[in-house]
């Protein structure tokens, strides 16, 4: 009863927020509502018992993507362009597609029906046998890191490719005097935010520790490499937001972080190659150790570690390059202001 009520409320709110996002012109408000949308989605996932997905959605959808949207908006402008064309044709296409999709759902089995195709092929084996075959309490980790390790490898490669793409498109060669000017701006900012700075300093160790907990607790509860990487990266974001990018660049060496991104994915691939050398198939952890279950544990630990390294460092790379662009813009504006003052 209460579950039904929560589901209905959350879904209604989702629709309301989505309509508000579509109708709003101020992009900052839109980005903030998108953050709320992420939180709502994640709450809904929790209500549906998909805890691991909710974890990822909370960290990525509500946290990091909102932050990146803000950075982009500061570079592109705050209000939406007025619509010049008539949206009738688009509306027609969307309505037809939507009604076709709804028509398609009529053929689908009911939610949670035991004879649904998704519950008849591999799912029973995952649920019944994973404890003997993999020996990991959290079923999601067993599926993600062992049964479907090759899919996960593909996902990590996608994340890595995104990092490379951002580097190729957005990275700018930096000069030392640029950093000096930016540092001046940041210093003046620091003086004004003493309380935020102190609280942040106290929080960051907890966030990093919590990220490690999520990384290694993934076998037993919700969590794993993806979530841990994002949480770890968000601690670094928080540092960069409050202490300035040039300070953060001194703490986090950019070439090392690029290396870590590559090493993470290399570790993942190497686990696969080693298991092939030991006589199994690619990413078959049973052969990594004399005992199959111990082999599974070792393999899952190593690949989660690789995933965590790659995700964290790619997130840091993306954020630093986005925010670096924004800071360059700001610096140019500041120089113009100084010139204007001199002219006066």
């Amino acid at each position: 009863m209460i579950g039904l009520l929560i589901d209905i409320t959350l879904l209604t709110l989702l629709v309301g927020v989505a309509i508000a996002i579509a109708r709003m012109k101020d992009l900052f408000a839109v980005a903030m509502l998108a953050g709320i949308y992420g939180l709502l989605t994640a709450s809904f996932f929790v209500a549906m018992d998909a805890v691991d997905v909710a974890f990822t959605e909370a960290a990525v959808g509500a946290g990091i993507s909102t932050l990146l949207m803000f950075v982009v908006i500061t570079m592109t402008g705050r209000s939406e362009d007025p619509v010049r064309h008539k949206p009738l044709l688009a509306l027609l296409v969307v309505t037809i597609t939507g009604s076709l999709l709804i028509f398609g759902t009529l053929d689908m089995p009911y939610f949670g029906a035991p004879d649904a195709p998704i519950h008849t092929h591999v799912a029973p084996r995952y649920i019944n046998d994973s404890m003997q075959e993999v020996g990991v309490i959290n079923l999601v980790t067993a599926v993600l890191a062992s049964y479907r390790a090759f899919d996960t490898f593909g996902e990590v490669v996608v994340v890595f490719t995104a990092g490379i793409g951002v580097l190729a498109l957005l990275s700018v060669a930096r000069r030392r005097e640029d950093d000096a000017v930016i540092e001046l701006v940041n210093d003046s900012m620091h003086e004004q935010h003493l309380i935020l700075r102190i609280v942040t300093k106290m929080l960051i160790p907890f966030i990093l520790l919590f990220a490690l907990y999520v990384q290694f607790h993934g076998d037993f509860g919700p969590g794993g490499g993806f979530q841990a990487g994002v949480i770890f990266a968000s601690a670094i974001f928080l540092y960069a937001l409050l202490f300035g990018l040039s300070t953060a660049r001194r703490v986090i060496n950019q070439s090392i972080i690029r290396l870590v991104a590559a090493v993470g994915i290399l570790l993942y691939g190497c686990v696969g190659v080693v298991s092939m050398l030991n006589g199994g198939s690619f990413l078959d952890y049973n052969v990594l150790s004399s005992d199959p279950i111990a082999g599974q544990h070792l393999g899952i630990l190593l690949i989660e570690w690789g995933v965590g390294c790659t995700v964290a460092s790619v997130m840091v790379i993306i954020f630093f390059n986005f925010a670096g662009r924004q800071e360059d813009n700001q610096k140019a504006q500041n120089e113009e202001d100084i010139d204007a003052n001199r002219a006066l």
Binding site: L196, V199, M202
Partner: peptide
């Protein structure tokens, strides 16, 4: 307790900022 402590730190700080 962790959530409580974090709320006690974070909420007033965010309001202040």
């Amino acid at each position: 307790l962790m959530i409580l402590v974090m709320t006690l730190f974070i909420n007033p700080t965010a309001s202040h900022a």
